[in-house]
């Protein structure tokens, strides 16, 4: 009995080694760097650098853009999730593949593709000038960053929403209609409340990577628009200041923990998790 038990534990061994080496130790290192000076003394100064106007602006902008792109994803994904959950299995799995397909391509590649679409002399502007329409300047604006975020993270919103919506028993919706609720009342009182776990899960899965991204803002925002992710990136790579970088990372981690807590609260049964 005990033998069998310890054998099972052994199977988790390889992953445990991985987790300790590449998740737990790095986390401890970030905590250590974030809370110490270069001489190894304890300090809150690294974390306090978030209060400098530039850093606050970067954090605020990151929050703003990720909130906007999360909302856009939600608005795009919810109706789609409802349509998919109502259609038959074959056509819905085809649609899902259609929306998941971009996820199988490299993230960097997708973002660079958007760059060449939105560039001053990019694909969209070439087509527009061919049609003698006015060119538009989107590259290096917050708008371009939002487009990149939405494009890259939309599948993470669709999947949990589809998952939770398709699990709602058709008889429950029929019962609401039967008991006198019109289409809007059925949505408002039945479908929406029952899909909350999927909404929370989708919001978190879009919001967290959007908030922490620096690649999308780098490629589509040029070097002009700095998000908090870019600031941290610069601290580590350009200034080689691991202490300040780690301190700012800890700030971001607070937002991530809040999001995780939200999932845990609303999605107790794991209904909304897509994977």
């Amino acid at each position: 009995m005990t033998n069998k038990h310890s054998l099972k534990k052994l199977l988790a061994g390889p992953y445990l080694v991985w987790a300790v080496a590449f998740i737990i130790i790095p986390l401890i290192m970030i905590m250590y760097y974030g809370l110490t000076t270069e001489k190894g003394h304890f300090t809150f100064a690294n974390i306090a650098t978030i209060t400098t106007p530039d850093n606050l602006k970067a954090l605020g902008l990151a929050l703003l853009l990720s909130i906007i792109s999360t909302l856009i994803c939600l608005i795009l994904a919810y109706p789609l999730g409802m349509i998919l959950s109502n259609s038959n299995i074959n056509s819905s799995s085809f649609m899902i593949i259609l929306f998941i397909l971009p996820m199988w391509m490299n993230f960097l590649l997708r973002t660079i593709a958007w760059q060449s679409l939105l560039e001053k002399n990019g694909v969209i502007n070439s087509v527009l000038s061919l049609l003698h329409l006015p060119r538009f300047e989107m590259i290096n604006t917050p708008g371009a960053i939002i487009v990149g975020m939405v494009y890259n993270f939309l599948p993470f919103m669709i999947l949990p929403l589809y998952n939770v919506l398709s699990k709602i028993d058709k008889d429950v919706i029929n019962a609401a209609r039967d008991l006198g609720a019109n289409g809007f009342q059925t949505f408002h009182r039945i479908i929406l409340p029952l899909s909350v776990p999927g909404i929370i899960s989708g919001i978190t899965m879009v919001f967290v990577p959007s908030l922490t991204t620096f690649v999308i803002s780098d490629i589509l925002g040029g070097s002009k628009i700095l998000l908090i992710g870019n600031v941290i990136d610069q601290e580590f790579v350009q200034s080689s200041n691991w202490h300040v970088g780690s301190g700012l990372s800890l700030i971001l981690m607070i937002f991530i923990l809040i999001s995780m807590a939200m999932i845990a609260k609303y999605d107790k049964e794991g209904e909304g998790s897509a994977f």
């Binding site: 028993d169 008889d171 029929n174 019962a175 039967d178 008991l179 029952l194």
Partner: peptide
């Protein structure tokens, strides 16, 4: 009104 085979109760 209908009473459905799977009850159709609102779990929330």
């Amino acid at each position: 009104n209908t009473v459905f085979q799977n009850y159709g109760l609102f779990n929330h």
